[in-house]
Design a protein around this nucleic acid. Structure first.
Length: 520
RNA sequence: GAGCCAUUAGCUCAGUGGUAGAGCACCUGACUUUUAAUCAGGGUGUCGCAGGUUCGAGUCCUGCAUGGCUCACCA
């Protein structure tokens, strides 16, 4: 039905005042923004559309450098090479009736020489009106300047997109860390090493997929919206499904669905995807991050160690070209074989405390007190051993180290060790003092799994919000029967940080989580 | 969640209680091989926000916001 009043409404609610109020919040234009908008009008008066359609390119900047940088100036002119190139205007040096500029595309920068007597008076007017940041298309021939720079002499100069805001300063670039993360497009335009980082991230992901595909693994996609979040110890994000009238959770791990697929007969399976954990933000944590999880039937955690080692070595060779890498000043040797050590042995090595002999909870607590390891009232011996490891050992593991044999209490989804059921057939890989992988021989006994879930429910009742929940559907899958299975999880963001030497996880995420800015 | 530090022009940054500054960018003019182009002229600002102290606050104090680092939680 037509709105007779002409006022803006939504479902009968008058929005006019809201819109006016929002408009009044818009910040006034700066001088530079006003000038650029005036140029927009001037261009249209000249019959130039400042937001053009497509522009066909023959080359990227890097292509031209690669093909012609080594060609002599005389030969270049003799060959009369015509090219078409497009990019963002990054510098402009005008001298009366001619001028130079640099255009930047994804591959790099190329210089363009614009002469009024070559492009014509009207196109030269457009060149004069061009601002840093505008998108420009150029057709022309290649030559070398007096100083030997490969340059395009423009025969045609086309404005493709008028930029209405000034770019950051050309020499210092964009430094403000907050702006770099919030306005990543500016960061990408101004800081070439940022593009490099994300191209490498993309290359790492391609290499992982190629590696696993080559090893016979099937890539799948499982739900990120779940009614029971499981597979890890973490607080989930809660959301709501209106049509079904139910609370749902964003997944905290991929694990339980992939194991259902192992039950279903997909014997080697992996997923690379986003998981979400409702926790603090730091240089090593983002609320959403990318996990690789894979499962292989008829294997165990030893096979997963081999796979982890081989895959990361393969990636380092492919990405870095060496197994000696530098992370934030530390030189890391990735040459295999990597050390494999039991958690209890490692604690003994570093602190002198031996958890192998059976002991009472009081004895374990006394050891923690004596060594300054902080524990809580509800912790069992297994938890205390884990605290020893995390507080005393973890940070010392600079070079790649597989630490195995985690206490059963902190490993509700891993098989118990047959010789010592206090511990599990589980390992974590540590490099530069950080966990880079977590894997185990998957618990396949449905009765044991149910008991582990019960133990987790008890922890939950004692206030551990991150304890695992009961998942009856998953238990039913185990009751159908899951083959012996090795499983592995790798945090992709941290792996990328390691391989590109990034100090913060925000440097390997295009749009890291930021608090909502008060202005927006 | 706690501690420390930061927030000044579009960007990068000076400004240690007394008139708001520089470089780049921008505006006007000159310049047909420049390249952090050059030359002559022009300052474009809610000093993050709100209070307080003071004759006087960008500067000192308090609170708040955002960010960075460290710690906590985790991967």
């Amino acid at each position: 039905m037509a709105e007779r009043s002409g006022r803006l409404t939504d479902g009968g609610i008058d929005l006019e005042d809201d819109v006016q109020q929002l408009a009044s919040f818009a910040s006034p234009l700066t001088e530079q923004e006003r000038v650029r908008r005036e140029k927009l009008t001037t261009l249209r008066e000249l019959g130039i559309e400042p937001y053009a359609g497509k522009f066909e390119r023959t080359h990227r900047a890097e292509d031209i450098h690669a093909q012609y940088d080594h060609v002599e100036a005389m030969d270049l002119e003799a060959q009369n090479i015509h090219v078409r190139i497009a990019g963002r205007l990054m510098s402009k040096r005008r001298q009366g009736k001619a001028g130079f500029m640099h255009l930047q595309d994804m591959s790099g920068r190329i210089q363009v020489y614009v002469r009024q007597d070559t492009v014509g008076e009207k196109a030269y007017e457009v060149y004069k009106l061009a601002d840093l940041g505008d998108m420009i298309g150029v057709a022309g021939t290649i030559f070398k300047t007096k100083t030997g720079e490969t340059t395009i002499l423009a025969h045609a100069f086309v404005l493709l997109t008028k930029s209405l805001k000034p770019l950051p300063e050309k020499f210092h670039g964009l430094k403000d860390v907050e702006l770099r993360y919030r306005k990543r497009y500016l960061d990408l335009i101004m800081n070439p090493e940022v593009l490099e980082t994300f191209l490498t991230r993309s290359e790492i992901l391609r290499a992982i997929r190629a590696y696993l595909d080559g090893a016979g693994y099937i890539e799948v996609e499982t739900p990120t919206l779940q009614s029971i979040p499981g597979g890890a110890a973490a607080r989930p994000f809660i959301t709501y499904h209106h049509a079904l009238d139910m609370e749902m959770y964003l997944r905290i791990a991929i694990e339980l669905y992939l194991k259902r697929l192992i039950v279903g007969g997909i014997e080697k399976v992996y997923e690379i995807g986003r998981v979400y954990r409702n926790e603090g933000v730091s240089t090593k944590h983002n609320p959403e991050f990318t996990m690789l999880e894979l499962y292989a039937a008829y294997t165990d955690f030893h096979d997963m160690m081999d796979l982890t080692e081989q895959m990361i070595v393969h990636l380092a060779r492919k990405i870095k070209g060496t197994l000696t890498i530098t992370y934030q000043g530390d030189v890391i040797d990735l040459t295999p074989p990597w050390r494999r050590v039991h958690m209890v042995d490692l604690i003994k090595e570093i602190t002198g405390v031996d958890f192998w002999p059976e002991m009472s909870l009081d004895e374990a607590r006394a050891l923690a007190r004596a060594h300054g390891v902080e524990i809580t009232e509800t912790m069992s011996i297994g938890h205390i051993i884990n605290e020893f490891f995390e507080q005393k050992v973890e940070a010392t593991l600079l070079h790649p180290t597989f630490v195995y044999g985690h206490p059963v209490e902190i490993s509700p989804l891993a098989k118990k060790n047959v010789d010592d059921p206090r511990f599990t057939d589980r390992f974590e890989l540590f490099i530069v003092g950080r966990e880079h992988a977590n894997a185990f021989s998957e618990l396949s006994d449905p009765i044991d799994q149910r008991e582990r879930f019960y133990a987790q429910l008890k922890e939950r009742a004692l206030g551990n919000e991150e304890a695992h929940r009961m998942d009856e559907d998953f238990l039913e899958a185990l009751e159908i029967g899951m083959p012996p299975t090795g499983g592995l999880g790798i945090g992709i963001d941290r792996l990328v940080m390691l391989l590109v030497d990034a100090p913060s996880i925000r440097d390997v995420l295009l749009f890291p989580h930021m608090r909502q800015h008060p202005q927006s």
